[in-house]
Design a protein around this nucleic acid. Structure first.
Length: 383
RNA sequence: GCAGGGGUGGUCGAGUGGCUAAUGGCACCGGGCUGUAAACCCGGCAGACUAACGUCUUACGUAGGUUCGAAUCCUACCCCCUGCA
């Protein structure tokens, strides 16, 4: 283990559980709270790595399941790992495939040993276990590795949620064991940088089950802790409630990651509840579908009312897209299925998300996060 | 000029006596998207009235006709395409 701390808290907010911090990885430092753009298949859809650097993204995601199917982790390892393969010199986090256990529904079968998937690409049978997920993620060489979990569907009865969380705990232990062995092997090479393993808390919306899940993960010990199984269809109030309950119970000296969240409001509300890290497909997926985020709320740039609108996507945004292009032009691009439409909106939406996170960090550091929170939300919703 | 074929809603194109305000595609309009099976999915799309079930009006080149009933059958006319002169 290298001498420097993986994570360090820098500032605490007085009025909430919000805090700023810094994560140090072999591929750069990450200021938290952070939003991590999702690049499932080794690309943040519609954007180049140059654009992500221009946006000042410090860490992006990749997905074990997708890269396992194509191009295969042996190939990526042979080409020098995921960073080198996609030419991304900054940090990367890889999801374990646990979300696909949830999202692929009928295409998978869950067993204690692991999960049998039928590839959504060609129907071929594939198997992922905690051990296999760890091996794949070691081959990919991501800076943050996620334990293999079962993202519990919603709704789940107490019994279902308990059974699911307990399997996730057993899988977490197996992930830890396999991960540690792989790290020993990496250390001997003296070339491959150290990776970090995060455990994932499940337990659906049941407080005591969340607590049980956390306790079992703490017993194992991880470099960071993620809250999984939220934003999967439950009421927003339940998501906030669950986060509010469990986040403050996580170790204060480890990063807290709320998986798959969320809307701009979700980010702020969850930061206030103590979360340090987020990822979500929303800014990029919605961008490709014509929805952009602005300081005054969501806007569907495909709407007819923007046909002659010469304003930028967001009047208050300083991103290079908003400095140059009009809503009318972007709308025209969408109506003609031009790829540039997706590029411009994806760029802007990530600029909006990353800028919002910068403002969050700054306001926490300056001690006026509560004011920022109120102002942002009233403006964002008041449109 | 003769012989065939054809004219359907923004568009392309089904339908060939009642179940047709008219399948479907596209276009257009709107909504949704939260660890990406997603540049995707859902809904609307003649007009008027109604909170709504719904009611009424106008519609399948034009004008007539047959029929209880026509986009569908008949007659005339207009226009388009193909072949032959």
């Amino acid at each position: 283990m290298s001498g420097q701390q993986f994570f360090q808290v820098l500032n605490y907010d007085i009025n909430s559980s919000a805090r700023t911090g810094i994560i140090k990885t072999a591929n750069g430092e990450i200021e938290t709270p952070v939003f991590m753009p999702v690049g499932t298949r080794g690309t943040v859809k519609a954007l180049t790595q140059e654009m992500l650097e221009a946006l000042d993204a410090k860490i992006i995601l990749g997905n074990t399941y997708h890269l396992f199917l194509r191009p295969g982790y042996e190939l990526i390892a042979e080409l020098g790992g995921l960073h080198k393969f996609i030419s991304w010199p900054r940090a990367m986090l890889t999801d374990s495939g646990g979300f696909q256990v949830f999202s692929l529904g009928a295409l998978r079968r869950i067993k204690e040993e692991g999960v049998e998937f039928r590839s959504h690409l060609d129907g071929a049978a594939k198997f992922i276990s905690p051990e296999i997920s760890m091996r794949i993620q070691a081959a990919l060489g991501s800076d943050i590795v996620m334990a293999f979990d079962e993202c519990t569907p919603y709704p789940a009865t107490r019994e279902e949620a308990k059974k699911s969380l307990e399997m996730t705990s057993r899988w977490a232990q197996r992930s830890r064991t396999e991960f540690d062995q792989l790290q020993d092997a990496r250390r001997k090479t003296d070339v491959l940088p150290r990776q970090n393993l995060f455990g994932i808390i499940q337990g659906s919306v049941y407080h005591d089950l969340r607590q049980q899940s956390l306790a079992e993960l703490l017993e194992i010990g991880f470099e960071g802790y993620a809250i999984g199984g939220l934003s999967v269809g439950e009421e927003k109030s339940m998501m906030y409630d669950t986060t509010e309950f469990i986040a403050p119970l996580l170790p204060p000296d480890k990063p807290r990651y709320l998986m798959g969240v969320g809307t701009p409001e979700d980010l702020i509300e969850s930061v206030a509840r103590g979360v340090d890290m987020f990822d979500c497909v929303m800014p990029t997926r919605n961008a490709r579908n014509g929805q952009v985020f602005t300081a005054h709320g969501k806007l569907n740039v495909k709407n007819a009312k923007y046909a002659k609108d010469t304003l930028p996507l967001d009047e208050e945004c300083n991103c290079s897209v908003c400095q140059r292009y009009s809503r009318a032009y972007v709308r025209h691009l969408y109506l003609n299925d031009e790829v540039l439409a997706s590029i411009l909106c994806s760029y802007h939406n990530l600029a909006f998300y990353l800028d919002t996170m910068r403002q969050i960090r700054q306001s926490i550091a300056l001690g006026d996060f509560s004011t920022f929170r109120l102002n942002f939300l009233s403006k964002f919703k008041g449109s």
